[in-house]
Structures are given as C-alpha cells and as structure tokens.
Amino acid sequence: MLNKSYYNTILCLTFSPCGNYLIVGDIYGKITVFHLYRFMNPNVNASSQNLSCSNSFTVQEDVQINSLLSTEHYLVVGVVGEIFGYDWKVVKNNKDAKVSWKVELPNSNDLFNKAEINCVINKEGVLYVGCGDNKIYVINLEGGRILRTLSGHSDYVHSLFNMGDELASGGEDGVVNIWDIRSKTVCNKIEPYKNDEIARPNLGKWIGTVCINDDWLLCGGGPKLSLWHFRSLTPSTVFPLDDQGIYFGEIVNDKVLAGGRADHFYNMVFNGDIVSKIPTSCVSVFSAVHQEEPYRALCIAGSSPKIDICSNFNYKDQVLVVT
C-alpha cells in the first residue's frame, strides 16, 4: 500500500560480507536487498531502474526488524524475541526466503514479554545480543545455544560494541557498562547523564550508541555525544551538535561519525571540529554503515523509506527508496 510505504522506517542496515550488497530492514518486517554495483559504479548510468532493489522478502509480517548482522555464512536478523539466520544465497535471490536457523530467546512465549533484539554483534562465532529485556545474551552460532546471560542493565539495552576482550553496552538506563568478556563481569561503568556538561535532562538519560577503540570511548543518546578517555573514563570532548538525541555514533580511524534526530549526519574529528555535515532525508538517523572495499560507501537511513548514500563521506550522492 502506498500510504504504508510512505510511513516506513528503516531501523538497521548492513553490507553483505562480499561488500556488493546493502541489506535493509524496516519496521514492516521486510528485508530489502540492493545491489551496490548498480549505483556505485560510475560507469553505469543511474537510471531509476538501477535504483530499484534486487530482492526483498518478509521475515514476519508487521514485526519490525530491529537489527541486522552479517556473518560469513549468514545474515542474522533480530526481530522481536527471535533471531533468524538466512543463508546469503537465499538472501540475494529468493523472494520467499527460507530461514536457515532460528534462536528463540527465553520468555518469548509470552506475547507481551517478547524482547526486541536491539543489537547483535559477532565475536569469533559467538553472538552478543542486546535485548529489550535488559539483558545481553551470549549465543553460540553453532547450535544456537544460549551460553550465558549478562545482566547489568536496569532497562533496555540499546547498543553494544566489542573491542578485543572488552564489550561496551549502552542502555535506556543511561549506563555504559564495560564488560570483560573472559570473566563475564562488568569491569567498568560510566553514567554520562550524571555529568552536567553532557546531560540533557529534557531528552532523558538513555544511551543510544556506544563505540570504543584502544584509547577512546564514544557514547551519546539523551546526553550529548561525548568522547571519553577509555582508561581514565573521563570525558575529553563533548561534541557541539544540534540534535535531539543520538542514535548512531562510531569511531572510524581518527574521525567520528554521528547521527540522530538532527537535520544532518556529522563527520567530525576528535577535538569536536566538524569535518562535514550531510543533510539527511529522514528526521532521525537510526542506522548508518560504511565500507571501503569494493565500493567506498556510506549509507544512512532512519525514519523514512529513503536511504542516503555518500561515496566520499562529504555529501549525499544518491537516495534509494524502500518500497
């Protein structure tokens, strides 16, 4: 229905492991696959036909797709209470794609307690799943067994990031937990909303995104997007963005990418200077992915059926539409 797709919202994006495909998950439970070659190749004229999707299928009718993850063999789809694995071959070609495997979270029998799978990351064959039931599930990809449950949050888990042996998680409760994967315990935690400089009480204390590298920790959400020194856990930079909440932030080499409810998607350096601002098609950016090979591309999507594509991280090249 026309009206329906007009109100579509894209919650997550991912590239296929080969880098040729962009996979899009929306709130109506539909996965749309775009072939990047068609519109990233400068030799090919970008006609409207080239901008159409190459495949699409529905996971569960009207059940939103909260997270997507590419592993070597499978596309991992996190919906509500369930995680599905699709074979890549199937994802690329079949209109009525068959699920290869499925993991159900505990308590998912109860309709009202089904937890959204907000974030899925993969670490050496083990999935870390951040869920709406305040827990982080550790699932073995082989066999789909739940190895462990990490409970350290008192509200929804929004974001996870893994770096070496450390796992950072951010949630609705405003806490960023840093876990030691080996001991499965919280080794550190920060609460940005308690910092007066960062807090934005009108927006809430929730943490929408976390990202770490060797020296730095990036987090934001209701509180402003801020860069913390990883070892001392003190804020070093508060980014001066004009936003109403951060849903996405990532450290890429020496740059910081960030988006949220704002008119632009930002590309910044560590000291807070803005390198570039990309105007977005959507009101809020929920997800962004980037890659260098085989095509240099940055895809930004959010509360709109449109996906903005930038090839040089500086301005919008193309807009794809999920129908």
């Binding site: 229905m1 009206n3 329906k4 109100y7 919202t9 409810r261 009101v283 809020s284 509360s303």
Partner: peptide, 16 residues
C-alpha cells in the same frame, strides 16, 4: 509535524 518529528510520524502511521 511528520517532517520534523518522528513521534507524529508514528502517530500518522498508526492511523493509516
């Protein structure tokens, strides 16, 4: 309105 506010957008969506 739906052009600058996701909540309103969600409201409109639920109405259709």
């Amino acid at each position: 309105h739906s052009g600058n506010c996701d909540e309103i957008r969600d409201m409109e969506r639920s109405l259709i």
